[in-house]
């Protein structure tokens, strides 16, 4: 399809989003990522039945932690799409890019750089 999406998005592949844990999302923020999103399969379509549902719960938990720390919870997000939806993948990437651009750099990165 040769679709383009913002080049500053780093993709980390996992066998199933059920593998993504709270600590992985937190570490990304701690290490200065401006935002993190999890792109899982459509709900009800998980090969392992509940991997994407678990991932959503963990993403929501990280949102809560960020809120407690006074950091915008919108910096982490969960999306669901099927493996056949290339255009949607690119659309989500652009959507998240725009959202983070609107929020500005992460306060963690700003302080680390200072």
């Amino acid at each position: 399809m040769r679709l383009s999406y913002p080049s500053n998005i780093k993709i980390i592949q996992v066998p199933c989003t059920g593998r993504v844990d709270i600590i992985h999302l937190l570490k990304a923020i701690e290490d200065g990522a401006d935002g993190v999103y999890v792109a899982g399969c459509l709900e009800g379509e998980c090969h392992y039945l509940t991997g994407n549902l678990k991932a959503r719960k963990r993403v929501n938990h990280v949102k809560k932690i960020l809120m407690d720390l006074g950091i915008e919870p919108e910096r982490v997000e969960m999306y669901n799409l099927s493996a056949g939806e290339g255009p949607r993948f690119a659309e989500i990437a652009r959507e998240m890019y725009e959202r983070i651009k609107g929020l500005g750099p992460s306060p963690v990165k700003m302080k680390n750089a200072a």
Binding site: D21, I23, L26, E30, I65, L69, I71, K111
Partner: peptide, 21 residues
């Protein structure tokens, strides 16, 4: 051990943000 990691990361984020790592 897992929750130790999560707490450590959370505290580090909060303290970096507060300018007091």
């Amino acid at each position: 051990a897992k929750e130790v990691g999560i707490l450590a990361s959370t505290l580090k984020i909060a303290r970096i943000k507060g300018g007091n790592p």
